[in-house]
Design a protein around this nucleic acid. Structure first.
Lengths: 337, 337
DNA sequence: TTGAAAGCGCTAACAT
DNA sequence: ATGTTAGCGCTTTCAA
């Protein structure tokens, strides 16, 4: 079932069929109809490989997701997929594990599928020009930016929130509600990634509000996993709770933290308030509902496609910062000061 | 950067390069080394489109996921991806919305990407031979089976749990713990899908335990969404709670139900027990931890690939039923009878 | 063991 | 407005 069969069936040449298929103008209405009729009658579907081979460029963009088990990514992936398809792109989704090298995966994907460009979701924040050169195509960092790398501004686009600022906002909110002993639950304070960025925001907020930093308040659980977060918080409680509020760097970790606190008999928010950043669906259903700074996930996905599209059409690179929105749940309470 | 460049660089013909790339035997060691050296020096990556075009068959299998926002699918997708890659297949992931027609999407994918076969995740359970004929390639239903369709046993493979049985088990467990007024939270009792199957199991368990069915105990929220589940349970409570235990057809819905009950002042499990089927990570962190029948998600993904692989190698079709495992949380309590 | 060449299905000049 | 034809990059006969 090839374009030749369709041509034979409708009594025209293959080029005419190709024109119809690709919506070229110079085809008479009668022929156009006959060809479409043949296409449907034969259930013909063009062979993508042949198309990709002959076209100077494919219409595909790659979406490399690192750690797709994170529910935070789900709505972003969908937004990217829909926006890209609407803009005429084909999206090639490639998921890798949290520990894998997304640049290596992306480079291979870009070459073997002849991608126009790439969107990286959940990648590292420490790229160098040498490492990204391998990609060979424009790329956009989605939900993170190259905070710790050495990339020049002309080399890449990104769309993300201002992680440090959001973290500072969350911590300041806790301060304003009267909390003075504020802990942070993170992966590591120096992982060259969002964990470190949000830790910076935490420290800055403490400083700006005249509070002292205390290492005992920093709960580093070593990963972004819920299981590690749970264990880490339980251990902290067993060691003696020294904070009245906890800022968690992700919603998922906050969920585990609330459970850990609750299991240990610490009431949320009466004994310990909890706040986070992300805003995933599940945390609307925690008890109490999580207070969190919601990332504009759909907008982020749409902008990622927009930024890539701009690069592909000769526009330059940009780094965009989107705002978060406070979603007040019941996990933060006021404290007499 | 094509195979020609590699050939020129290493001073051999393109066919020799092709042989090296594809591990054909008749190549001298010296030449083999030279070619690989060239490949690495030039960072050459074969063009997949050209390969697919010329090869009688691709090495790709399609994975069509309907409703990928469901966290239940995440570990299954990963298991399928890893197992398939290990078996030498390339996985083409295609996500569609809950309402879309997965057979149409799958048929198009199969043709345009020349797939060897398909794995359907989260599809409908009412296929007919006419509709699946369009696929043109072997397929496996993963996590569901063709309970309501007219497909003959030779036409497809599937791997799933026995939904009706699992539901009956869950309800029977509630009965054994002393509950006599048992409700069910589902999408619709007659949606020709797992909601209907699990409803059957619910009714069967009631019957076998000598309990009467009562429509007031059936909470149909119209979808599998958490938001609808929440609203539905709240409405039921406002109408007067007439059950002491609630069987939810999915973990996600149970999470919303627990929240709804809690928000309405109904204590879980003291005033109302909750049980579900699925076993997702999040419900380890609900308060109380959800008691649920865990589906063997990784095994399911692996078996899906195994079943497709068998079909592809001339083996027949099979329908496999996997067992669930009870994960005891704290959402079910005993009741004096 | 190696090379030359045909052709996979399609698009896009170029002809007509 | 429509047809003819040259490749796209690769694998695979077939010859050497």
């Amino acid at each position: 079932m090839t374009i030749k069969d369709v041509a034979a069936y409708s009594g025209v040449s293959v080029s005419t069929v190709s024109r119809v298929l690709n919506d070229h103008p110079d085809v008479s209405d009668g022929v156009r109809e006959r060809v479409w009729a043949a296409v449907h009658a034969l259930h013909y579907v063009p062979n993508n490989a042949a198309r990709d081979l002959v076209r100077p460029t494919s219409d595909s963009i790659g979406l490399v997701v690192r750690g797709a088990e994170n529910p935070f990514f789900t709505p972003i992936i969908r937004a990217i997929d829909e926006t890209a398809k609407a803009a005429g792109y084909t999206v090639v989704l490639h998921q890798i594990r949290a520990g894998e090298d997304e640049l290596a995966a992306a480079a291979e994907l870009a070459r073997s599928k002849r991608l126009l460009g790439l969107i990286l979701l959940g990648g590292s924040t420490d790229y160098t020009a040498e490492r990204t050169a391998r990609l060979g195509v424009p790329f956009v960092c989605c939900s993170f930016t190259n905070s710790f790398g050495t990339l020049s501004a002309a080399d890449y686009s990104s769309v993300s929130i201002d992680d440090e600022r959001a973290a500072a906002q969350a911590v300041t909110l806790l301060y304003e509600r009267g909390h003075r002993d504020i802990g942070i639950l993170l992966s590591a304070p120096d992982d060259r990634s969002i964990s470190e960025l949000r830790c910076r925001g935490y420290r800055r907020a403490l400083r700006e509000n005249g509070l002292a930093s205390d290492d005992a308040l920093v709960l580093a659980c070593g990963s972004y996993d819920m299981s590690d977060a749970y264990r880490c918080v339980r251990a902290a409680i067993d060691g003696g709770l020294c904070f009245t509020a906890l800022f968690c760097i992700s919603d998922a970790m906050a969920m585990a933290a609330i459970k850990a606190l609750s299991d240990a008999g610490v009431r949320v928010p009466e004994d310990c308030s909890v706040i986070a950043i992300d805003g995933i669906e599940s945390t609307l259903y925690t008890i109490p509902t999580l207070t969190t700074l919601v990332q504009p996930k759909e907008a982020m996905g749409r902008r990622a496609v927009g930024l890539l599209d701009a690069q592909l059409h000769g526009g330059g690179c940009r780094r965009e910062l989107l705002d978060t929105a406070l979603r007040e749940g019941g996990s933060v309470c006021s404290r007499r000061t």
